[in-house]
Structures are given as C-alpha cells and as structure tokens.
Design a protein around this nucleic acid. Structure first.
Lengths: 242, 242
DNA sequence: CGCACTCTTGAGGGGGCTCAATTAGAGTGG
DNA sequence: CCACTCTAATTGAGCCCCCTCAAGAGTGCG
C-alpha cells in the first residue's frame, strides 16, 4: 500500500513550503515506490553510486562518514521530510552513509530520471537546490556548535534542534518525543566522547532541562535550554518537501 | 574592462567540469558585470537579502557566521571559481557573511534572473545544485576534521586542502602560494584558539612540513602532511564553474 | 544462562584554553 | 625622521574541560 503524493501526510505541516497541485503531480510521476526498512539497516553507503533517491516519510536515521583511522563522524540526523541521496544524484556518489535508527519508510525515486525531472519541472529543480542550501545552512550551524561551544552547550543545542524539528512535524506530544538514537550517535555528531556525553546528559537531566532516556526525549523549558545553547527559538527555516 | 565568459581564465583548469558552448553563452547572458573590492571589504552579510550573486574570479575571501555571544566561526574559505550567494538566491537570505581577505574580482549575476535562469537552462540549474552538493560535501569533511582530529591534524588538513585546491587553479608556483588570511581566521575555522594555532603552526614549520609565513604557504612534502591529516591526496572533486 | 549491546560512574592525565607580555611591521602625523 | 598607534605574530605560565582507561549494571536475545 503505497501513499500517493496527494495524500502525503507530511505536506500539511507548515515546516514545508506549500506545494502547488502541479508540484504534487510532478512528485507523483517521479515517485516509483516505497522502501520499508528495519532499524540498523543501511540506506546508502559512502562512495556508493545508488540508482535511487529517497525522501524520509516515517522514522529516523543518521548520516555519517568514516575517517581513515576507523572513527565515525555523524554528519547529521534524518527526520521525516528529509531528502536523502542528492549527492549521489548530482555528484555521482555519496560522501557519507545513511542508515536507519528506527524502522523507516522512505519514498523512492529513480536517479536516472533526475535529469529529465530537472528539465520538465524547473520549479521543483529550484526547490531541490533550495533544499541543498538548507542542508548547507544546517551544517554551517553544526560546525559553529562544534567549534565554539562547550559540551553542555553543544548537547543543549543538538537536543533542542531535534526537538524543534520534530515539533514541526507533529512528533512531539506532551513535550515528549521518540528519540531512537544511541548516546554514541550524538557523541559522534558533536565530536565528544561517549563518557563525557553521558555525564553531560545526566547534568541536563539533573537540572531538569532535558531528559533523554528510554528512547524518549522530554523538554519542558525550551527557553532555558535555548539560552544555554545560545540560539533563537524561532529559527527552523521553511524548506521544500520533495 | 569586463572579462567575457568565453575568455574566462578559470575554465581551462581541470578542476572544473568542462562547459559546453551553450553553457558559456548561458553564463554570459546571466553575467551583468564585475565587482572589484579591496581586502577587508564585506561581500555579503549574514541575514542580508542581496540582489546579487557572485563567482570569485581572482583573490580569496572567507565565509563566517557570528554566534550570539559575539564569537566568530569561519565556515569556509573562498577561492577563485567558488560561487557565492546561492543561499540568498534560493532561501532568500544568507546564513553566513562573506568578506574579502585579499583584493578580489567577482563576476556579478542578478538574483532576480535566477529563476528565469533555472527555467531556460536546466543543465546549468543542475550544475548549480551540484555545486551546492559539493559545498555540503566539504562542510561534512570540515565537520569531521573539527570533531575528530587534534590541532596538528586539523591544521595539516586545512593547509593541505587549501594548497591542493589552489594547485588546481594554477596559484601554486614552486610549491608556494599566496595565503592572505590571518592566523585568527584559520583558528576560527578550526575551532582552535589563536595561541594554540600559532604554536601548532610553529611545530609544522619546525618539522619542515608546512611553512606559512609572510602571507605565503609553502608545502614541500604533501605525502607526509596527508599522512598526518589522514586524507588521500587525490580527492579534490571535479565541480561545475558558474 | 551466557553473550552482546547500551548506559552509567569513577579516577587520572593531557591537550588546548585563558591571561599576559613582548616583538615586529605598517601607517600616520608632527 | 622619529614618536605614536594599531594590528598580527609570538612565547610563557597555569589551569580546566574533556579525553582515555576501566569496571559495573541493566536489558534483550539465542
């Protein structure tokens, strides 16, 4: 049972730029199916030349790279509405891997049709570039977080960012959301050791700022957390949905 | 005296994806002039909604963000051939600022024509997306560098990256190139303190690995430096030139 | 019940931070 | 031509945040 784009459950959220009817039709023509995978399954591999592109529909995952000494850097997290595989689509291969952290459903597109898609639907091509720019924006922010902030600040930033992203797509109920990642994932994202990540998370819990345990994140006071993270609360930019 | 795109001095370098005649004509129609600025001059400001987009033709600059506590994070460096302002073009505003570190010449494009450009030249639109993906790739690498590497490794990585980038566009002569940045710029890029950056640069100099002084960078043994930086030597990806 | 994975907590050491002072070079103006 | 200023690079001293090593506890699974 494949969801048709006109019934896409994500479209209604204001996080996404509104789509015209012709946008929706274009996507429906481009979409070739759905992929359902279990937690822990790889979606795309670094260096691979995948024939497919995806949009996350349900579930969460992470993007990561391997360094030559076997370490892992988590580049970003994947939430519903995120587009996956653009690099392979235009550059020919992925510079990072993507893997599911929970059970995921992804819309599948054929990479071979991407070029025709660009020609036929310039508005959507524009949106794809936009999306890429949003991604770049986010990485720039992550870089800043990593370069300038203490562990407490970095973790506050990361948790709050994820929380606010998920709020916008209806995944937060009662100030609580599912967070299927491991502490190691967040540590690898922020360049911290697992041990120190754990201790800092305890600190956030003790101070009642953010409680991440049992696979769920609870945030009661976003203002306080934002003050520590040194970010504004109103800055989840609107982005296109592909 | 404005350079016409068919005489663009950058096109001949293999760093860039070859351009077809129609590509060149498209760019010539899109280009509205050149901007020449002195070192220290801002090109684009964070949050600004610039009416113009640029491609660096000569000179170097840097991209940076300000954090709410007044610190500065250098996101990336700008070299000839880099496209500047894409974020403003698609998202409506820049998420970082760009400023010249040396005297620069930039090709100028009108942002208002970007949308028409996308419709008229889908190949070029595709290339723009590609470029954005390259940028994302680079930021991912930077994130890894910052998150996983020691100061010595990070600095080796950064210097070697810049050196190899400039080699590809003919700016290296006799293993030596102009490097108009300040130590503070590099420190802010890598999330290091100025003091420690300085001491680590001395170390690289003592070990005869990389000598950056008097505004010039000399690298004699790329292999050794690459070993420290933990990167391969053959990985400056081909990218489109806009 | 043993193995694997994740989270947790303690102890000790070092890489990179901050504070502070000096040197060198480039203007600028009297 | 020299005093004054400003910016960039340099070097020393002391300290702390975060790292590594190590061990233990909780949970799910074959």
């Amino acid at each position: 049972m494949v969801t048709r784009c006109e019934h896409c459950p994500l479209r209604r959220f204001h996080l996404f730029k509104p789509m015209s009817d012709s946008d929706v039709k274009a996507m429906q023509k481009f979409k070739v199916g759905e992929l359902i995978i279990e937690a822990g399954t790889p979606v795309l591999s670094e260096g691979s030349n995948s024939p497919q592109l995806f949009t996350a529909l349900y579930g969460m995952g992470l993007r990561y790279k391997h360094t030559s000494d076997g370490e892992r850097q988590v580049v970003n997290f994947v939430f519903p509405g995120d587009f996956v595989g653009l690099q392979a689509g235009v550059m020919g291969e992925m510079s990072h891997s993507v893997e599911a952290s929970s059970k995921m459903t992804l819309c599948v597109f054929n990479r071979s049709e991407l070029w025709g898609f660009f020609k036929s639907y310039p508005e959507r091509a524009f949106d794809l570039t936009w999306l890429s720019a949003v991604e770049e924006h986010f990485l720039g922010e992550a870089l800043t977080s990593l370069g300038q902030r203490s562990a407490l600040e970095s973790l506050s930033w990361a948790l709050l960012r994820m929380f606010m992203r998920c709020e916008r797509i209806g995944l937060v109920q009662n100030r609580r959301m599912a967070m299927p990642f491991r502490q190691q994932d967040l540590a690898d994202a922020l360049g911290l050791s697992l041990v120190h990540t754990n201790k800092t998370l305890s600190k956030l819990r003790d101070q009642q700022l953010a409680d991440w345990s049992d696979g769920h994140l609870t945030i009661n006071d976003k203002e306080k957390l934002a003050a520590i993270a040194k970010i504004e609360l109103d800055v989840v930019p609107v982005r296109p949905l592909m």
